[in-house]
C-alpha cells in the first residue's frame, strides 16, 4: 500500500516535470513547475525528511515560483493571453528530428546506466546515521539535521551562506534590468488586509521555527524562508517598496549572519579544527549563529525577489 502511494507520487513527479519542460505554453510550464516543487515537498515528507519538505515547499515551490512568475510577467507583458514564443521543440525538419532523437537516446542510455549502478552499489561501509547518533550528546542540540548542519558539517553551511551572498552581489552588479517592469496595478484591498493580518503571524512562526530547530524539524533555513515569503507578500500587497539600492543598515543585515558565523569560526580556530565547538557552549553558539542566519537568510532570499523588482525601463 505504501509502495503504491510512493509509486503514484513518483509518476506524478515525472509527469509534472515532463509537462513543465514540454508544454508549448510558457505560462503553463511555469505553473506546472510550481506543481512539481510541491510534489517534491510531498516526496521529501515520504522520505522521512520533514526539514527538506519545509524548505522545498517554502523555497523550491514558493520563492522559486514567485521569481519565475515575475520573470514571466516581464517576458510577456499583459499576461492575459499567452504571447507567441519560440517553439519548445526544434523545427520539425529531418536534421532537427535526428538531433532530438539522438539527444533523447543518449539521455535514456545515461538514465539506464545510472539506474543499473544504483542496484549494483555495495552496502555502505560507514554508517553515518549511527555516527551522528553517537555524537549527538556533544553537539549542543537534539535534532540530528540541525546538528549536522551547524556542528558536524558547519563549514558546508558557512560556505553556503557565502554562496548566497555572492549570488546577491551578482544581482547588485547586474543592476536594474532593461526589461519592461511588471505593470503595478492598484493593489487589491483584500490582499492588503490579508497581508497586514498574516505577516505578524509569519514573523511569529519564523521565531518558533528558529527556536524549534534545536529539538525538532525547523531551523534557520526554514525560518529565513518564511521571513522572505512575508517580505514578498508585503511587496505584492504594495506595502513594501522594491529595493533600488540597499542602504548601509540593509547591507549590514544582509551580511550580518555570515559575519557572525565567520566570527564564531575564527574565534574557535584555537580548538584545532574549523567550527569545533566546546560541548558546553555548543548549544548557545549554535543558537547565536542560527539567529543571525535567520535574519540574513530572510533578507537575502527576499532580496533575490525585491532587488529591482520595480525597476524602471532604462534607456
Amino acid at each position: 500500500m505504501n509502495l503504491l502511494l510512493d509509486g503514484l507520487l513518483v509518476l506524478a513527479l515525472l509527469w509534472s516535470a515532463w509537462r513543465a519542460l514540454a508544454s508549448p505554453d510558457l505560462a503553463r510550464a511555469v505553473v506546472l513547475f510550481i506543481v512539481f516543487g510541491l510534489l517534491m515537498a510531498l516526496a521529501w515528507a515520504r522520505l522521512n525528511a520533514p526539514d527538506i519538505a519545509l524548505a522545498e515547499a517554502a523555497i523550491g515551490a514558493g520563492l522559486t515560483g514567485a521569481l519565475l512568475l515575475d520573470a514571466l510577467g516581464r517576458l510577456q507583458p499583459g499576461t492575459g493571453a499567452p504571447a507567441p514564443e519560440s517553439p519548445a521543440q526544434p523545427p520539425a525538419n529531418r536534421a532537427g528530428r535526428r538531433w532530438t532523437g539522438s539527444v533523447a537516446l543518449v539521455a535514456g542510455l545515461l538514465a539506464a546506466a545510472l539506474a543499473y549502478a544504483l542496484f549494483q552499489l555495495p552496502a555502505p561501509t560507514v554508517r553515518l546515521p549511527e555516527q551522528v547518533a553517537a555524537n549527538m550528546a556533544a553537539s549542543g542540540v537534539d535534532h540530528p539535521v540541525t546538528a549536522v548542519l551547524l556542528n558536524f558539517r558547519g563549514y558546508d553551511t558557512l560556505l553556503e551562506v557565502a554562496v548566497l551572498l555572492i549570488a546577491l552581489i551578482g544581482l547588485l552588479t547586474l543592476g536594474p534590468a532593461a526589461g519592461r517592469p511588471a505593470a503595478p496595478g492598484p493593489a487589491n484591498p483584500l490582499l492588503k488586509a490579508l497581508a497586514r493580518l498574516l505577516v505578524p503571524l509569519m514573523i511569529l512562526s519564523a521565531g518558533y521555527l528558529l527556536w524549534a530547530g534545536a529539538h525538532r524539524p525547523g531551523g534557520a533555513f526554514q525560518a529565513g524562508a518564511l521571513l522572505a515569503a512575508a517580505a514578498v507578500l508585503l511587496h505584492l500587497a504594495q506595502l513594501l517598496p522594491a529595493w533600488a539600492s540597499p542602504g548601509r543598515l540593509l547591507r549590514l543585515g544582509l551580511a550580518g549572519g555570515f559575519l557572525i558565523f565567520l566570527g564564531v569560526a575564527a574565534a574557535l580556530l584555537a580548538e584545532g579544527a574549523l567550527l569545533t565547538y566546546p560541548p558546553a557552549q555548543a548549544g548557545g553558539l549554535i543558537l547565536l549563529i542560527e539567529a543571525g542566519l535567520t535574519v540574513s537568510l530572510g533578507l537575502i532570499l527576499a532580496g533575490l525577489f525585491l532587488l529591482f523588482a520595480g525597476a524602471e525601463e532604462r534607456p
Binding site: 527538506i52 520563492l63 519565475l68 558539517r153 549570488a167
Partner: peptide, 21 residues
C-alpha cells in the same frame, strides 16, 4: 532517516534558488 545527506540537500535547495535568481 539519514541526517547527513538531508542536511546537504537542505543546503543545496537554498543554493539552487540563489542560482535560479
Amino acid at each position: 532517516a539519514d541526517p547527513v545527506p538531508q542536511a546537504m540537500v537542505l543546503t543545496g535547495i537554498v543554493v539552487a534558488v540563489a542560482a535560479t535568481a
